[in-house]
Amino acid sequence: MKGFILSLQSEFYKSRKTLGFWSAIILPLLITLLVTIGFYAGSDKFIKNPPMVLWLQYSGTILGVMGSLLLPMFIVFVAYSANNIEHRSDTWKTLFTLPISKWAIYTAKFLFVCILVFLSMLLFAMCTIGFGNLLGIIKPELKFSGYSMAPQLFGIYVKLFLASTSIIAIQFLLSLLWKDFLKPMGVGFVGTIAAVILFSVHWQYNYLFPYAQPLVAMTSIKDKKVPGEKTSTLNTNIDLLTKEVLISLGIAAVIFIIGYFIVRRKSVK
């Protein structure tokens, strides 16, 4: 256990000067800022909207950008970055000659990637709430203050994280095995495109496909459309452990364990 904690601390220490680490912080800030500017510039269109619909449009824009394309690619990048530190400096051999078990080193690295993605998701929720309210103050005619979406936002972003654990596990393992960024990136890119296609054609088993799981998970923020109403309403009670989330966690666990056995037997050349 001590070795695991030391390894995890070391991951933060090593990565704190890398883009992989900072992207987890910069990405949520940048995207929410851009969407906020967009809403500020085009505020006329939203003035008539009631607070809840406004929040739904605002957070939905951010979620739409993030959840479909950016989240998987962000994971590709972060998972590679955590492993690339060792590839680039040829330090796998020193990691595996430390008097720390391979299990602790491997798990700490994996958890580090999970923490970064989770941190980024939390920041998305916080930035959405923060910038939304700020927009309400700067432009009082946008009625952001009339509704609080915090519980749903935290819920949906935690859910997005849980649904993306399968992608994290896949990309982590690929990045660990392949030094060449193009390979894990290629797999991640093709997976993401395939997921968007499967999702848009409403394939009934898309919840089984790792790269589509965040997309499926995202739909739970909206209640089913009530016939006759123009917009959907907010689901106030987000169920975290839906089938796509459970399957994602299951796939992540299986790949994580397979990965460990590969690492244990892997020769460091």
């Binding site: 000067k17 530190i85 400096s89 040829d90 330090t91 000659t97």
Partner: peptide
């Protein structure tokens, strides 16, 4: 072992 393994960004 071989070339020293050093984190070049640190």
């Amino acid at each position: 072992i071989e070339q020293p393994a050093i984190y070049t960004h640190l």
